[in-house]
């Protein structure tokens, strides 16, 4: 379907989660008789209240029982349903990990896990509500596709794609109402393919999730210092787009991965795992949470503690343009 400028404005206001559940999901419901959407007592928070009213037969609230939700999702998928299960990203990826491994990964079931408030969107709630290891865990599960949306347009596109894809998938939605937009109505989402937002010659900034917007801001700062950046969006973290990564390695002096996630095992690690198999590739800087938690506060405050805001990343890049070794 065609997306209008008005929709883009509205989706930006709504954020990724509401765009996914309040806008895309009803369309998916109309196209898929076998749809089931499961929540663990977060229907309102996930903007599913209207969906549950309009499609009561396709909706199930399992209460505050996230592990049971995954098992029920598995049972429904074994019976032919296209199942979406959603709660906070940390709950679905960490608390539910073994259920996801045993049922969805092991049996390769057609369940889409939608982790909301990934990264530190739930800023003031503290560590319990942040998701900073979900990519690590989900990526390690055989057969699991892992995606992370940069903005509401991409969240919408991922929703549409996920309904057509058969198999287990984890979609990481981070983003609040009034989320900064990276794409417009002309965006063509290509699954499993890195999206290049701008091309430069010195540094490749590879972002995922909200860090894609931050990478664009970083590139602006660096361009004023005469450093030319490519900005890439790795929305599909698994399977990895080796072809585009190789091209980025071949044509830049420095690779910078940017994620709102622990630097251990996340998107940056996925890039590094592939890079390590190749000869003569540039060095990589890992921008992310430096294997630590921090005190709660605003998102901006937390990002600053971790050094992942655009000005901080620009400084880190400048320091590392010389070629000396980099301690992550």
């Amino acid at each position: 379907m065609t997306i209008t400028k008005g929709q883009i404005r509205s989706w930006s206001r709504l954020g990724q989660r509401a765009t996914f559940f309040a806008n895309a999901m009803p369309e998916i419901a109309k196209q898929n008789d076998n749809l089931m959407v499961l929540t663990a007592d977060l229907a309102q928070l996930s903007n599913l209240d209207r969906f549950s009213n309009n499609f009561p037969d396709k909706f199930l609230n399992v209460g505050i029982a996230e592990q049971n939700m995954i098992g029920i999702a598995a049972g429904l998928a074994m019976e032919g349903y296209l199942v979406y299960a959603t709660t906070y990203a940390s709950f679905i990826a960490v608390r539910d990990l073994e259920h996801v491994r045993q049922h969805l990964s092991n049996l390769h079931l057609n369940v889409k896990l939608i982790g909301t408030a990934a990264g530190v969107v739930a800023a003031r709630s503290g560590v319990a509500h942040w998701a900073s290891e979900d990519i690590t865990f989900m990526r390690a599960l055989p057969g699991m596709t892992v995606m992370s949306a940069a903005d509401s347009v991409e969240a919408y596109a991922m929703a549409q794609y996920s309904a057509k894809y058969v198999g287990p998938m984890y979609i990481r939605l981070n983003g609040v109402p009034n989320c900064p937009m990276v794409y417009d109505e002309n965006y063509v989402f290509e699954p499993e393919k890195i999206s290049i937002l701008q091309r430069g010659s010195d540094v490749a900034l590879i972002g995922t999730g909200l860090m894609v917007h931050e990478a664009l801001e970083t590139a602006k700062i660096l361009s004023e210092c005469g450093i030319s950046c490519t900005v890439a969006n790795m929305h599909t973290i698994k399977p990895i787009d080796k072809e585009t990564l190789k091209e980025l390695f071949d044509n830049h002096k420095l690779i910078v991965t940017m994620e709102e996630h622990n630097i251990i095992g996340g998107m940056g690690s996925a890039v590094a795992e592939y890079k390590a198999t190749l000869n003569n590739t540039p060095r990589q800087i890992f921008i992310g949470f430096p294997d630590s938690f921090t005190k709660a506060g605003t998102t901006q405050y937390i990002w600053e503690q971790f050094g992942i805001t655009a000005p901080q990343v620009a400084e880190t890049v400048k320091k590392n343009m010389g070629g000396e070794s980099y301690d992550r």
């Binding site: 098992g71 029920i72 049972g75 259920h99």
Partner: peptide, 8 residues
Amino acid sequence: SVGVGQAI
């Protein structure tokens, strides 16, 4: 839990 899903 899987059995619950299949029964539903």
